[in-house]
């Protein structure tokens, strides 16, 4: 059977291409080899030699010196370490975003549900929100950002869940709420990883709208100025009248803080804005969210 097949294969190949004449002579030796092969293990001398060679190989494998074994172990260790580091990069740049987007989406829809159930009223004091509790949704239409805002800037409780954190005084400076008569509503968010809500916050231009939706109102801010980098210890940027913002008198401001340059924590990037509209929920969405 095997003898027939190569010939039947060779015929049609030969017919359309008369140029490849030298092919059949090549086929014949391979055919013969193939036919002989199955007989080889049966014949005694080849099998014994094969077995002897295998035994030698096994003996050589068993006799690996400690140096070789140690070198191999170190090599494997480094390969493993490299793979783990690559996986960590994948985790940081990709997986944390997947998780955070899911969590932030869940938090936002939970907020919506609770607002729908609560009915109309007035926004309450900051003291009523516990750390990690979401209480508002941040929209930056120019950057296509929509993220829930939660009380506190704890990484594990808030920021790493894809949410934006409100400086609320839990171990750090406390800042005002949007509904306060005056003050600075200061927020922190991730620039990279974990949902990265503030990834492109440096692209905001003066006049771009920043909207905060709460249980009872939409607060629209307008971006006014930006501090490209400052020390992480510079807390005066979230003062009621932020230092460096150009504001001179108390008012209703918003401050966004994130890290810069990207993928590092060396400095902080600050964006300021001032409130231009307070719109009760009953009057519908502000223009910034409609267009």
């Amino acid at each position: 059977m095997t003898a027939l097949r190569p010939e039947s294969d060779a015929r049609p190949r030969e017919a359309p291409t008369p140029v490849s004449r030298p092919l059949p002579p090549e086929d014949r030796p391979t055919m013969q080899l193939r036919r002989i092969e199955p007989e080889q293990p049966v014949t005694a001398p080849g099998g014994r030699a094969e077995r002897r060679r295998a035994a030698q190989r096994a003996a050589r494998a068993r006799k690996d010196s400690w140096g070789v074994i140690a070198t191999r172990a170190v090599g494997e260790l480094f390969i493993t370490l490299g793979t783990v580091l690559l996986l960590f990069v994948a985790y940081q740049l990709w997986w944390t975003n997947v998780i955070a987007h899911r969590q932030a989406g869940g938090a936002a829809s939970d907020l919506r549900d609770s607002w729908a159930n609560a009915g109309a009223g007035h926004d309450r004091d900051a003291g009523e929100f516990s750390p990690g509790q979401g209480f508002a949704i941040l929209y930056i239409p120019a950057l296509d950002v929509k993220a829930p805002i939660a009380q506190g800037v704890g990484k594990h409780q808030v920021l790493d869940r894809g949410m934006v954190g409100h400086y609320a005084g839990d171990g750090g400076p406390a800042t005002a709420m949007p509904w306060d008569r005056q003050g600075n509503f200061a927020l922190a968010g991730h620039r990279n990883t974990h949902g990265e809500p503030f990834r492109y916050v440096n692209r905001l231009k003066p006049g771009d709208k920043i909207v905060v939706e709460t249980a009872n109102a939409f607060y629209t801010y307008e971006m006014t100025s930006r501090l490209d980098q400052t020390s992480p210890a510079n807390v005066r940027v979230i003062d009621p009248v932020p230092a460096g913002s150009g504001f001179t008198r108390p008012g209703r401001y918003i401050t966004l803080t994130t890290c810069t340059p990207e993928f590092t924590s060396t400095y902080r990037l600050i964006v300021w804005g001032k409130m231009v509209e307070e719109r009760p929920r009953s009057k519908g969405k502000p223009d910034a969210l409609v267009s």
Binding site: G154, P173, P232
Partner: peptide, 23 residues
Amino acid sequence: WAEPLLPFNDVTVDNNGMQAVTP
């Protein structure tokens, strides 16, 4: 577990400086 031990992704300002930038 390892992520918070590494010095990436601190986004807040804090008067205690780098080390105490909120956990």
